[in-house]
C-alpha cells in the first residue's frame, strides 16, 4: 500500500446463505480519486458499500483504510476514521429538520461530554454554535440553505439525496461513498450534482467512490470504474475503455449502453 492509497480492498467476500453477493473483490483507491462502482442490478454494489462502511460483516477478505484495518469494525468507528456514506434507499432522520440532520453528522466529533451539554458550559456552547454555522454552510453548499427548518421527510426526493450528502460531509470524511446519488433526480438536478461532486473532490480533496446507474453521469464524472456482475469484478479501468469491454456490454445487455461511442475510440 503506497502512502497515497486511501483504501485497499483485498479479496473481500460476502455470502448470504447460498448467495455469494461479493466474490473476492480487490481494488485500491488512491487519495483524491473519483471512482465509480457500476454493474447491473443485483451485482452486489450496495453490499460492497455495506461491507466497507461496517453495516455488514464480510465473510472473508480484508479492508484497509489509511493505515488501519477496518474489516468487520463497527459502523460508527469506521465513520470516525473518516469514511462516510449515503444510502441508496435514502435513510434520513425523517422527523428531524434538515438542519438537525446535518447537525447529527457533527455530533461524532463533539468533544464536550453530556454533562457540559446539560449545564451549557462554555466549551459546549462554543462547539454548538460552531456546529450550527457549519451546518448552515453545508446546507448552502448543497443548495438547501433555504430549507433548513423543513422536516427532512417532507423534502423532495432529489433534495433528500442532497441532504444525505450534506449529512455525510458533516462527519468530516476523507472518503465519501455515494450510493446512487442521482437516482430519482431530473436532468437539471443531475447536472448540478455532477458539479457538486467534482467540487467536493477538487476543492476539498475528498476521495469519492460512487455507485450510479446513470451512465452518462458516471462516464463524465469518474476517472476510473470498477464493474461488478454477480459479485465479481468483470472489468476495470478508465471509462472509455470499460465502455467498450465486451464483457461489460454483455452484462449490461438490455440496459442502455452507448454502443455508438465504441465504434470511434477516442471520440
Amino acid at each position: 500500500m503506497t502512502p497515497s492509497d486511501l483504501l485497499r480492498v483485498d479479496g473481500l467476500t460476502c455470502r448470504f446463505g447460498g448467495l455469494l453477493a461479493v466474490d473476492s473483490l480487490s481494488f485500491v483507491l488512491g487519495q483524491g480519486q473519483l471512482m465509480g462502482l457500476i454493474g447491473p442490478n443485483g451485482a452486489g454494489k450496495t453490499t460492497v458499500f455495506n461491507l466497507l462502511a461496517g453495516a455488514v460483516r464480510p465473510t472473508g477478505g480484508r479492508v484497509f483504510y489509511r493505515e488501519h484495518e477496518i474489516t468487520g469494525k463497527k459502523a460508527h468507528r469506521i465513520n470516525r476514521l473518516g469514511l462516510a456514506r449515503t444510502f441508496q434507499n435514502i435513510r434520513l432522520f425523517g422527523e428531524l429538520s434538515a438542519l438537525d440532520n446535518v447537525l447529527v453528522g457533527f455530533h461524532g466529533h463533539l468533544q464536550a461530554n453530556f454533562l457540559s451539554a446539560i449545564l451549557r458550559l462554555p466549551g459546549y456552547v462554543a462547539a454548538e454554535r460552531q456546529m450550527l454555522s457549519r451546518s448552515a454552510e453545508l446546507l448552502d453548499l448543497v443548495g438547501l440553505g433555504e430549507l433548513k427548518d423543513e422536516r427532512a421527510g417532507n423534502l423532495a426526493y432529489g433534495q433528500q439525496r442532497l441532504l444525505e450528502i450534506a449529512r455525510a460531509l458533516a462527519t468530516r470524511p476523507s472518503l465519501l461513498l455515494l450510493d446512487e446519488p442521482a437516482a430519482g433526480m431530473n436532468p437539471q438536478e443531475t447536472a448540478q450534482l455532477a458539479v457538486l461532486v467534482r467540487r467536493l473532490r477538487d476543492e476539498l480533496g475528498l476521495t469519492i467512490l460512487l455507485i450510479e446507474h446513470d451512465m452518462h453521469f458516471v462516464m463524465n464524472l469518474c476517472e476510473t470504474l470498477v464493474v461488478l456482475d454477480h459479485g465479481k469484478v468483470i472489468a476495470r479501468g478508465e471509462p472509455a475503455a470499460v465502455r467498450c469491454d465486451p464483457g461489460v456490454i454483455e452484462a449490461y445487455l438490455g440496459v442502455e449502453v452507448d454502443l455508438d461511442a465504441c465504434e470511434a475510440p477516442g471520440a
Binding site: H76, G94, V104, H107, A112, A117, R120, E128
Partner: peptide, 26 residues
C-alpha cells in the same frame, strides 16, 4: 437541556434510524 443538545439530536437520530445514526459516527 439534554434533548435540546447535540446529545438529544443523536438520541432522536437513533430513534429515527439506528443504522443510519451509526453510519454517521454515533
Amino acid at each position: 437541556r439534554l434533548v435540546n443538545s447535540s446529545y438529544g439530536r443523536a438520541l432522536k437520530a437513533i430513534r429515527e434510524d439506528e443504522a443510519a445514526a451509526e453510519a454517521m459516527g454515533i
